[in-house]
Amino acid sequence: MKRLIGLFVGLFIALLITFFAGENPFHIFSILIKSAFGSMYDLGLTLSYTTPLIFCGLSVAVSFHAGLFNVGAEGQLTMAAITAAAVGILFPQVPFPFAPILAFTAALFVGGFWGFIPGWLRAVRGSHEVIITIMLNFIAAGTANWLALKVIPNLNSQNPETAMVSNNYLFKDYDLIARIFPDTPANASFGVAIFIAVLMWIIIWKTTFGFELRAMGANSEAAQRAGISKNKILVLSMIISGMLAGGVALSEVLGSAGQYRVGFSPDYGFIGIAVALLANNNPIGVIFAAFLMGALHKGAADLDMETTTITRDFSRIIQAFIILGVAGQAYWEHLRTSRIRKN
């Protein structure tokens, strides 16, 4: 609940900034709300942002639980998405129910591998995961660009994107959510994302592994004394984190676009940080936080068209202030505990 206060303070400051650009903050706010929920079409677009944000929020949250900070969700989802597209293009003969499963499994594997690298380096060499994952983001972007432009390009288009995957890989015909929101990229992967969020809640709070994960994050010294292998937790949590980010391949490539488009992600991996913080790393909370951030992102994208001075980059200002609003709250916590200590 306290996190909501941080959210509102952050949002308030971000809106106040629009004042300097000569806009009316109330007007901006009403555009944000209207363009996120105004119609079924708008809501569909909001949901299509929500799905990848659930995956990325979960990815960051799991790493936080283990005491790590995965800023590499962006690279992990990029590698997973290009993998799903590559599988769909290179093996067009695979029959329907197996085809998306094959592509998704391959995507999760590569996403997990992209998470394994920083986890392993952290465990073996103590390299800081933030710097390694940022570097891996750049490497992933370069690799995916090369694959999309040189190896499996779309020859019928000038846009930087891969060819279309074979139709066997798409589950459009069986997609109930896509039918509710016609003409939008919203699709059944929204349901999958919610299912995985619930699954992660069970894993983190109800299994031995989840306990070990949280113990390592809370106090790695004590956890190691209790016989929990630090290296195992570090590596496993980053692999899971990478696989979760890889889930974006399902919503983007297999669920809607049917191809990998260079720059399709408006930095979902970074917005995922705000999502995880807002949700206090609770997987169920991530669903709601992702919906909120998805709505704000959709709203900010429309500000580009509705106003003359505010561009889509405003979304980043909102995200940054929300993260700062939530992070700054540690102060009140600190004040309270120091007051208790005094008494």
């Binding site: 505010i310 980059d313 200002i317 992070a327």
Partner: peptide, 24 residues
């Protein structure tokens, strides 16, 4: 220093902030 916010998280938020404020 004053608000005792997490240094790594705050740092990433500042990176986002600069990416948003400069185009603004």
């Amino acid at each position: 220093i004053e608000l005792r916010a997490d240094q790594i998280i705050t740092g990433m938020a500042f990176n986002l902030l600069a990416m948003g404020l400069i185009p603004f």
